[in-house]
Amino acid sequence: MSFQKQLSSGEFVVLAEMNTPKGVDISEMVTNARKIKERVDGAIIPDMDNGVMRMSALAGGVLMRQQGIEPIIHVYGRDRNRMAIQGDLLAAHVLGIQNLLVVHGEEMSYGDHVDAKPVDDLDELGIIRAIQSLQEGVDMAGFDLKGSPNFTVGCMIKPFADDTALDQELEKAQGKISAGAQFVIFPPVFDLERLSAFVQKAKSLGVPIISTVFLLKTVGIARYMATYEPGVFISEDLIKRLRRAPDREMEGVILAGETIKALRELCQGVRIVTLGWEHRLPAILDYAGL
């Protein structure tokens, strides 16, 4: 069943984030994809995630299709103007990519090409509206298309540290949903009680909510996120659990698996983010019972 059909039928979807290589050696990406084929419902392909230049998501999406995994590719406005975005969207449809995730590009200064000129012609809402227009057979300049594309479009909820910030995010998401977004992806929240309350609140959006499970690779990363990203709600107990584990790396994997299991009751899907540790996805899925 396609990702779109699973979403509309209310089934729980499991999505794995798969990063494209920085270069043309696709062997690792393809090998990792083959290992999770049949075990996930789709692969999310980030595009120049964190401002790091990599092979584009369009090519990554096509590669996933070739491996039999349904891709969901990132679309964002930092590096492309409305011409390039629309052209790539038409290309994506023709190449069999049916799902898009409209995201906010990281600031150029945080990436690895700090001297590059950002484009920022369209913001997330502008991109979603452009997608809708293309689907209606008209480009942003009002010209008719010869054949129009069709996509399932999602948007992101940015990290939030409290209810007020969540309210603001939900308001923004509501605008994107009104413009055409059909699902939302929540940021990682490690405190499941809090997450449950947040998700309950977000149900007012009226679209499927997919939560993010973030693989904690090291105690250092956990501590960093706990300190600088209060919205993830990583507790001291959780850090202690990782620190005391005989195999800390495996403990992170187990934790991710457990979280996925728990999320089944809370939301309509999960996005597993491993940030380059896609080789750990099979083990995470094992512990999730998938």
Binding site: M108, D115, K117
Partner: peptide, 12 residues
Amino acid sequence: PAKDWRTSRDGG
């Protein structure tokens, strides 16, 4: 060479 745009408005 490719210009460093950080000094322009592109750097914020």
